[in-house]
Nucleic acid binder design. Structure first.
Length: 315
DNA sequence: GTTATTTGACCATA
DNA sequence: TATGGTCAAATAAC
């Protein structure tokens, strides 16, 4: 972790500490998933071991960086950590007490939220209103400057019950043929009830463990909502899928070879792959691009390991 | 009655 | 100060 330059100023330093804490938190959640997730059973013991080792290394790295930064003699880390735990659990402070919340709504809204960072996004451009397998709840809609279509704002349905911070913005960017741009912010930390996950390990460079990735997705790849009323359709579709979802429907689908799929990571090499499956008819004009960070893609499992083909071929 | 969506207002950031 | 992101009351749908 290179911290000295960026962290030379106090705001920059605090921001960096905050990011490190966030990263450590996500790594801890990943560790928890690896330990508890039933899906993890499909992975060989030896692979689990290496995955756990990898997670431990990540955590060690975060801890080391945090202790290095905080060794300057301040309590910034614990200070920011306290703020982080207050703000990142998806609840306003004022919600601790219903009464106090009702009587001081306006006051408590001050500084309760921050404007969205421009980083940590994953952008998908699709010809249809895609169902990404997660349960979303619309919380806002805004007209956007120089755009004929409003932008829709969604948060994870499990924001309050599980503290999931994932949000997405969806905007129609083209009328005919219809084109939607979905921008994802933060990753899902919830245990999404709508899905039955699969674990897929990508080992595109056999000798390089650092670039091995497991993608978690299943077979549901059809766009399921009507473009003309996408907002209302989305959650209905997810509910409809729920009881029939025995085969393990997915969070993500993989575009075929002839479609751009780009997933970026700030902490590792850019990783892209395609399935070559028969999904092309459905998502033929979809474009995916991530612009930053480990939060760009929601992955329930991201584990190093060599096994890929037999699992992947199911899709 | 409960849950989801709409919409105007508030607030932070560029 | 304009713009975009979020909140929460009002409303609609189930």
């Amino acid at each position: 972790m290179e911290s000295s330059l960026v962290a030379s100023t106090v705001p920059g330093r605090k921001r960096m500490i905050g990011e490190l804490i966030r990263g450590r938190k996500f790594a801890q959640q990943l560790q928890l998933l690896l330990r508890k997730s039933p899906e993890a059973e499909v992975i060989e013991d030896s692979e689990m071991t290496s995955a756990q080792i990898l997670v431990n290394k990540i955590l060690d790295s975060y801890n080391q960086s945090l202790s290095n930064i905080s060794s300057g003699g301040s309590d910034e880390v614990s200070e920011i950590q306290a703020v982080d735990s207050l703000c990142s659990d998806g609840h306003r402070k004022s919600e601790d007490s219903d009464e106090s919340f009702k009587t001081s709504v306006r006051k408590d809204r001050r500084g309760c939220y921050k404007r969205r960072r421009t980083s940590e996004t994953c952008i998908r451009e699709t010809s249809t209103w895609i169902d990404d397998g997660h349960a979303w709840r619309k919380y806002g809609q805004k007209p956007i400057l120089n755009s004929p279509h409003p932008r829709n704002y969604f948060r994870c349905t499990h924001k309050f019950e599980q503290g999931c911070l994932a949000t997405k913005h969806v905007q129609k960017i083209q009328e005919d043929p219809p084109k939607f741009r979905t921008t994802y912010y933060d990753n899902h930390t919830c245990r999404n009830l709508y899905k039955s996950s699969h674990v897929v390990i990508v080992d595109h460079t056999a000798g390089d463990n650092s670039s091995n990735i497991i993608w978690n997705f299943g077979s549901q790849i059809e766009p399921v909502c009507e473009p003309n009323d996408p907002v209302k359709q989305e959650n209905k579709e997810q509910v409809r899928n729920l009881p029939d979802n025995k085969s393990g429907l997915s969070d993500y689908f993989i575009p075929p070879d002839d479609h751009l799929t780009t997933f970026c990571q700030t902490s590792g090499p850019l990783t892209a792959f395609s399935s070559g499956s028969d999904h092309g008819d459905v998502i033929s004009s979809d474009v995916y691009s991530c612009t930053a960070s480990t939060h760009s893609m929601d992955m329930d499992h991201m584990i190093a390991g060599p096994v890929f083909d037999d699992v992947f071929l199911k899709y």
